[in-house]
Design a protein around this nucleic acid. Sequence first.
DNA 1: TCTACTTAAACAACGCTGTTGCCAAAGTGC
DNA 2: GCACTTTGGCAACAGCGTTGTTTAAGTAGA
Lengths: 372, 372
Amino acid sequence: MNPISPHTGTPGVNLPALRGHNAALVLDLLRSAGEEGISRLELAEWTGLTPQAVSKIVGRLRDEGLAAEAGRRASTGGKPRTVLRLAPEAGHAVGIHLDRDALVAVLMDLSGAVVAERAAPLDLGAGSDAVLTAVAREVDALTAVRESVLGVGVALPGPLDHRGGVLHQVTGFPEWDGFPLRDALAERLGAPVVVDKDTNAAALGLALARPSGGGSFAYLHLGTGLGAGLVLSGALYRGDRTGAGEFGHQVLQLDGARCSCGNRGCIEALCLEAVASGELARAARVLGEGAANLVGLLDIDLVLLGGRTVERAPEIFVRGVSDVVRGRARSTVEVPVRQAEGGGRLVAEGAAQLVLAPLFGRANVAFPANRN
Amino acid sequence: MNPISPHTGTPGVNLPALRGHNAALVLDLLRSAGEEGISRLELAEWTGLTPQAVSKIVGRLRDEGLAAEAGRRASTGGKPRTVLRLAPEAGHAVGIHLDRDALVAVLMDLSGAVVAERAAPLDLGAGSDAVLTAVAREVDALTAVRESVLGVGVALPGPLDHRGGVLHQVTGFPEWDGFPLRDALAERLGAPVVVDKDTNAAALGLALARPSGGGSFAYLHLGTGLGAGLVLSGALYRGDRTGAGEFGHQVLQLDGARCSCGNRGCIEALCLEAVASGELARAARVLGEGAANLVGLLDIDLVLLGGRTVERAPEIFVRGVSDVVRGRARSTVEVPVRQAEGGGRLVAEGAAQLVLAPLFGRANVAFPANRN
DNA sequence: TCTACTTAAACAACGCTGTTGCCAAAGTGC
DNA sequence: GCACTTTGGCAACAGCGTTGTTTAAGTAGA
């Protein structure tokens, strides 16, 4: 039998697919425009479609309750442009961040605004049933009043398979190996569920928060471990087995100190050892060398830092990483290093965006019946 | 003014764009099918389009001379399927590989077969006029008889900007800095020209030669320098400034030996130093550590090795890199390490594919009026 | 040799897409 | 008030893939 089966290749595009693509595109521009709104003619310019086509698409979105008119611009000598805005309350998503010892949950509307938030302690090692119960409790609490909940996004430490929503051996918790989290949770909640790595969710959330669609950045997460989320040319890059972003075990020191993974000289080992001994500047420098490797290898424009360890002393890490990245730059283009905004809610927000992003054509997500 | 200008975002899709996409898709499947050919119904299964839609598309391709019927399959109880094949002679592309001391040129037909080949010594430092003259001579020699030459692809060591076709300071040859190679050559030849890094061209050629569309691999080129070409989920990844694949100056040894780039512990420095002292196994091991970093970071399925230094002792390098990659693997999936096929012609073939790939929707190429 | 059946591909009518041409609506400026 | 500018809806249209039907070209069995 052929190793490659039909229908897994690049899909052909028919008229419904075209319609969906253009509608998602317009919806994404409405989302980006936010409170300020955007006119039909501007949508036409941005999409390259004719104004009339945009009018039709906007009309359909209005009929579905996803968009609404909201005032008008100042006139430039003729009829003033009608401002269109996304209807944020037309849909909601729940985002769940499962960490080793805590659970953070948010309810997000279509605009990306968090409308409700919960947090609870959690023992990820307490077994699947206890964790599922905890998740269900938070989801129920958040969605008690709301309707129009499109789905639940769950982000947790990897490794896992985002397509199937199946966990591999979550670091330190071997009992999760092979657990079909997505399907188990979907059945329990009676709602669609998406599962992804915490770093991927964070990167997706940060990508959607950026004004421009394009651009490439790395989100480096330094907490109890070290991982990365990669956004390349505007799209979250997960790799074919959700393995991309394995940043912590990049070797940075041949024959260096032994790491818990069995190899030597991993960034994570070097970095965490420096943190443990209180030498944050040295940890930042090590992180910076790894970041500079990423920047060079992947032509990255921006480095964002997050995670509990970073949040404890953000200036030291931003400064330290920035210095190394600037020093190693081979191009004249400056690559900024910043702390990721969002703080403790960052991953949960990204988890909610796992559900919302496909509506805006920003999928790269394991939602059922999606190509990625 | 808005930092992001209209029409640079994700483009809307209208009917001509849809038609072009589907036609390119079918053409790509015809290309992949090669000598064996493919039937209309198989095309329909692979694209997800209806058989009737495929029939129409195939009809148009036949009218344009790009496809032809070529016999029929064995019957399975009814009318036998008509086999369709790409018409390889319907178009040709020239691929030029400019290296520091040599020029390799190929003439390639639509199927990817090399129909003519030339090689000549070259001094990349002899000035733009001399190099352009040499290129024009080879192009003229290759295209003397042929018509239907779609364009010329040029691959050379970076850094450069593939979108604008402008060189930056080619390592060791500062006089090329800022030279608009694409436009200068296009004017001289009177034909469309595409310019890209040698490693990118090689990776593109290797990607198109693979049977499956998807998959991620890294092509590592070890010659007078060390670089990489990255194919991620089936698409060549160049980065927004053609900077991706800067593999040689990944730091692998903090505070290691000084590299020509000014930093310390770069893979290129470590690797080439080992090569210079005849310790190929050590060079291979260093290369392997870098490769294992890539494999982990980018969830890569396959590592291909090429370049003159590798070709001098391929078994040593394949074995050495493979051992390290296997030893560092964190997943159960085996990542094969192989020598890249194509030998000295690899980059020139990839350069020709820079021209052809857009026809098959495999663009990711700086061709005029292309989105990437 | 004939008939029934199966499979492939073309033909015709269709629905839906974005596009084009035209016109009403809603402002500004003199 | 009038001329002009700009926005956006309405109607007709061309072109896309889809659906329903027919024709072509084989196999299998009596």
